[in-house]
């Protein structure tokens, strides 16, 4: 088969999938970019007039009376909350995920499949069900508060639900498998004889972890962090259910613009920002992981 017909067949066979994806996934993203520079319609939608208002409103607001421009504090606090919670989620899932992945990878081959299966079940379980499950645990009359009151640690239920803490707990809970799986893949490929070499050369347990294991499984760490950070930043269901409307993240803020806010250009501009942040993370990820392979 010649190189040209190979490529032709490849494109031909892939084209139905590509067409559907361009129609119902990738293509509409361009429309979002276009909408972000149009003027907002009276109720919803847009007017086909070029306008920078959508982008302007991402960071700034204009006073309705005296037209003075100031930073949009409400927006900034939403961005800050999103970034803060996403970073915290990534760090906490890593703290739990690394030992968990290590634990699975060091099980005997027979039981390893079972432990891996136990991690994949929550991974494939409906996000909404998992969020709902954690909600039942942390609500005022939920088992956590009931348990803490019973032990006498607290005298009355602590309000966790509808706080940032609730959103954080929820995101850690739903995204933990996303951290464990790539870490497991990296540790599974890891040559355990290198640990023996480390101990043979006088390293302590902590030195082996820091000096040998972590640098070598770095691609897995980066992959896990990206896989957790990206959906956390764009989270919608978890903050909506556990944050209770007030503790919005970017995802909810975007939805608001297409719903009650009726400011489609702002929503489109916010979506574009989110998309750009994600793309930049992915580029950084590719750079970091390709640098790890000196042969490539």
């Amino acid at each position: 088969m010649s190189g040209r017909s190979k490529g032709l067949n490849g494109w031909l066979l892939s084209s139905p999938a590509l067409i559907l994806l361009l129609l119902a996934a990738s293509g509409p993203l361009l429309i979002v970019a276009v909408y972000s520079v149009l003027e907002k319609g009276d109720y919803s939608g847009v007017r086909w007039i070029l306008s920078g208002d959508g982008w302007f409103n991402v960071l700034f607001q204009r006073d309705i009376f005296d037209q003075t421009v100031s930073l949009a504090d409400a927006n900034l606090s939403i961005f800050w909350r999103s970034v803060k919670l996403s970073i915290a989620t990534t760090l906490i899932t890593f703290a739990f995920g690394l030992p968990t992945a290590w634990f699975i990878a060091t099980r005997p081959p027979k039981s390893r499949a079972l432990w891996l299966f136990l991690i994949t079940i929550p991974f494939w379980t409906n996000l909404l069900i998992r969020t709902f499950a954690i909600m039942e645990v942390i609500r005022n009359q939920g088992i956590l508060n009931t348990f803490l009151t019973w032990t006498g640690l607290i005298s009355e239920p602590i309000q966790i639900l509808y706080t940032d803490t609730a959103v954080l707990i929820g995101m850690v809970y739903v995204y933990l498998p996303l951290m464990v799986l790539p870490l497991y893949a990296a540790i599974d490929r890891f040559d355990f004889r290198l640990i023996e070499a480390g101990y043979d050369l006088y390293a302590s347990r902590w030195q082996v972890l820091r000096g040998v294991i972590l640098p070598i499984i770095r691609p897995g760490i980066v992959a896990g962090s990206i896989l957790v950070f990206i959906p956390s930043l764009g989270a919608y269901v978890t903050p909506r259910v556990l944050g209770g409307g007030k503790n919005m993240m970017i995802g909810n803020f975007i939805e608001l613009q297409f719903g009650q806010g009726q400011n489609w250009p702002l929503g489109a501009a916010l979506s574009t920002v989110l998309l750009l942040v994600v793309l930049i993370s992915l580029v950084v990820y590719t750079r970091v992981t390709s640098k790890d392979d000196p042969r490539g």
Partner: peptide
């Protein structure tokens, strides 16, 4: 005595050189 406290070193069959 744990291996990291013995004045004994090993040349491993697979070399086990640290790739990083």
């Amino acid at each position: 005595t744990p291996p990291n406290e013995r004045p004994v070193n090993t040349v491993f069959q697979s070399y086990a050189l640290f790739p990083h």
